[in-house]
Design a protein around this nucleic acid. Structure first.
Lengths: 253, 253
DNA sequence: TCATAAGGCTGCACTGAGTGCCATCAGCCC
DNA sequence: GGGCTGATGGCACTCAGTGCAGCCTTATGA
């Protein structure tokens, strides 16, 4: 269980909470974990909406005010580790290695999220069932996912800066990566965490790479000389798209 | 701001469509429009969070209870026409023409959303500025967009039923279409509704179609289909020269 | 050993969104 | 007219979230 859980709530407060939490990662507050445990026990017992914050703090044996010091909102207690994961992802993308292929790097970043889910399968499955049936939680999850997607898109925008339709490509690819990741993740969660999450996600991301990555549509023939490139295109493809593939195949852009 | 721009005007077509709809409120509720107008006037005047529902109903001269009869939540008053648009999109997808290309049909469905925005540019731009700076509204917008995306994905799942990775492809393509649409839409909104929204969105959707439209298949084998062109180039050739050849090969330029 | 300062925790009071219930008042059919 | 229906308004209530002030624990310094 990680430390920070600030959410994009009423501005200001969440930032301060995140700052204090992340600045002292060594001191693990047991109260935070106690609140999460109490909350999930009640959520599973009687449902999310039938559980009030007062119920949670009563079971945890702490003051009501303390709940909101650790979690900006009632929804946040359901996603206690995403803030940390998002920070990790941003750091991973920031400390790049700009020589790597952008789409591949974004896929690697997406895999970090899967890893977080896979670290605690039972918890993830429970949360999945909860969010699936509570509209409010589903909406909150959307805002969480959106922040991941924005992080990926911002990274790609940086990598595609100057290229034609750079922001469009960045946004679309980020959305596709997130959708593929979520498709695989949910399929794994639906199997109660029994399948091979990594393989499922790899397969899904492979589909996205095949659609947007450079190689598949502009394959470098195996038997060809190193300095010869073969581009295969449909006659009715948009010229700009073909040029983009071409640039990628030639190792430019 | 004039009240005419704030109120989502209903032209004859929308009116007729609303009449056919069974779920929507009665055919012509003036109170609904009055509430939207009052709400936007206050939101723009003093901000969303600084405006209470009591303020809105006081300005509109109606009872507080009536507000929640027309809008399930305070956020809903900001997106008064999306419910109708979503229903229209679902109907459009349901009454298909299953002979058409799935991706193209989904792009057409996405264009319906753009049309709704373009019907009332000033209102759309105002709402865009509002949602951009209010985290709560941004989160709500995500849930709205998510429902569009689900509608597209469900349609594609039906079309791809039985195909390998059908649901994966459906989810990814739906996400890509929505991302492209939103990229173009926001670019248009940022220009205060002065650009050509249709052309911008067409261009963005063209990118998605080029990536997913008809699977490239890469038939590097015996006989190539008529519509596939193979370009062979040296890796160190000048890009402009390659593009020239390309244009010639594609029969353009 | 004690005073003091700091920080975490609690209780309390308050705002505002959202809901359930019932009274009211219009139009409408018999 | 009398009753029915549906839209509206008012009232009271729950609950999430916040600001504030006080308390308790702990560390520090004399």
């Amino acid at each position: 269980m990680s430390s920070s859980s600030a959410a994009p709530r009423r501005d200001g407060k969440a930032e301060a909470a995140a700052a204090t939490a992340t600045s002292a990662p060594a001191s693990k507050p047991p109260m935070r974990d106690a609140l999460v445990a109490a909350a999930f026990r009640l959520f599973l017992e009687r449902g999310y909406e039938q559980t009030t914050v007062d119920d949670i703090v009563a079971l945890a044996g702490v003051g009501r005010r303390s709940f909101f010091r650790y979690f900006p909102s009632k929804e946040d207690v359901v996603f206690p580790d995403h803030e940390r994961c998002l920070a990790d992802m941003k750091e991973f993308l920031a400390t790049g290695d700009d020589g790597s292929e952008p789409v591949g790097r974004v896929c690697d970043a997406a895999r970090m999220v899967l890893r977080m889910y896979a670290e605690n399968p039972t918890f993830s499955v429970q949360r999945y069932r909860l969010t699936k049936q509570v509209p409010g939680l589903r909406a909150y999850e959307l805002s969480v996912v959106w922040r991941y997607e924005r992080a990926l898109a911002e990274y790609l925008r940086g990598r595609f800066a100057g290229r034609r339709d750079g922001t469009l490509r960045a946004d679309v690819i980020a959305a596709a990566v997130v959708a593929a990741h979520n498709n695989a993740l949910r399929s794994w969660l639906r199997s109660d965490g029994h399948g091979d999450a990594g393989a499922t996600v790899d397969h899904a991301l492979g589909y996205v790479r095949s659609a947007f990555g450079s190689p598949p549509q502009a394959p470098v023939g195996e038997g060809l000389p190193e300095d010869v490139v073969v581009v295969v295109s449909r006659r009715d493809a948009p010229l700009w798209r073909v040029v983009q593939e071409l640039e990628a195949a030639l190792g430019r852009g």
